[in-house]
Design a protein around this nucleic acid. Structure first.
Lengths: 159, 159
DNA sequence: TATTGTTATACTCTATAACTATA
DNA sequence: TATAGTTATAGAGTATAACAATA
């Protein structure tokens, strides 16, 4: 839609921005994955699932987990099965709908997640310690603006 | 190292920033992957390898590709094999070292990559079109600062 | 009929480590 | 010995689609 009228000069800028953001994210993510594995013998999706439950003490249904983790349902089943087998989460019946479960942390899961989250926070803080608190704030706000617009305009089917 | 003296309030900010950046990156990345598959029947690592070669017309050695793509050597061999089989890249002997190759785009690979890169740029531009050029610039600069510091301080082994 | 969740499957990407050939 | 690259393997992560049970 009227791409021509914009002039060309800003396009490569967006591209450079994206490449930098992608590289940086991969760098941090790679370190987080490796630390999670080394120190806790776990993975990022498993950590992510537990983090979602930590924020929702009453538990979440499978389809809510699926949406929040941005993966399809079958995968959530698999990750949940592993965590159940280790006694870190549990499936609770939902009264009034016998198809659905709520998944929630067990006490042991909550305790272990507390340790992991504490360390994780340290890795992240050190990743961003090159920025002042004001810069962290500015970055957070700018990314929020991108995300906001992006979610409002989900698919550019015309291209 | 002296985490206590920093005060606690800024830590959750860095964490929130990271979660937002990770989510946004995954969102864009997921769309790029899906478009690359739908329109060009290719994948992000393959696109990435070709992009590296586009920037280096004389080609790159396998270990240089490995470093730039941030994956181990065996994987580069596999991706390169696929692209060679499709006639998009070629292995060229390095005079003076019979162990090494340079990998470079074929004319057909260069042409196809041109099309892909053009579309890809469109997806990225639309992902960031919620920002003004000045904001794009600011974001780029802030991320550069993070990356710079991060690379100078590679591993927080103490935590 | 639609929805919730599971199962089965296949494929890509990845790291690790053993290996070959050359330096 | 060290380096460049390959091969073999195993595992994580993912999507798709068929399926069962319930709404």
């Amino acid at each position: 839609m009227d791409m021509e009228a914009r002039g060309h000069s800003e396009h490569p800028q967006a591209l450079r921005l994206w490449l930098r953001m992608l590289t940086l994210t991969q760098l941090v993510e790679k370190q987080v994955r490796s630390q999670l594995r080394e120190r806790f013998e776990t993975t990022l999706p498993r950590f992510d699932l537990m983090a979602q439950l930590e924020r929702n003490p009453d538990g979440l249904k499978m389809n809510e987990l699926s949406r929040r983790m941005m993966v399809t349902g079958g995968n959530v089943t698999g990750i949940t099965d592993q965590l159940v087998a280790e006694g870190l989460v549990e499936r609770v019946e939902v009264s009034g709908d016998r198809r659905a479960y709520r998944v929630r942390l067990t006490p042991r899961g909550r305790s272990l997640f507390g340790e992991m989250a504490h360390q994780h926070e340290g890795w992240i803080v050190s990743a961003f310690e090159g920025l002042s608190p004001e810069e962290v704030q500015a970055l957070h706000q700018l990314l929020g603006k991108v995300k906001q617009h992006y979610k409002d305009t989900p698919l550019e089917t015309a291209a």
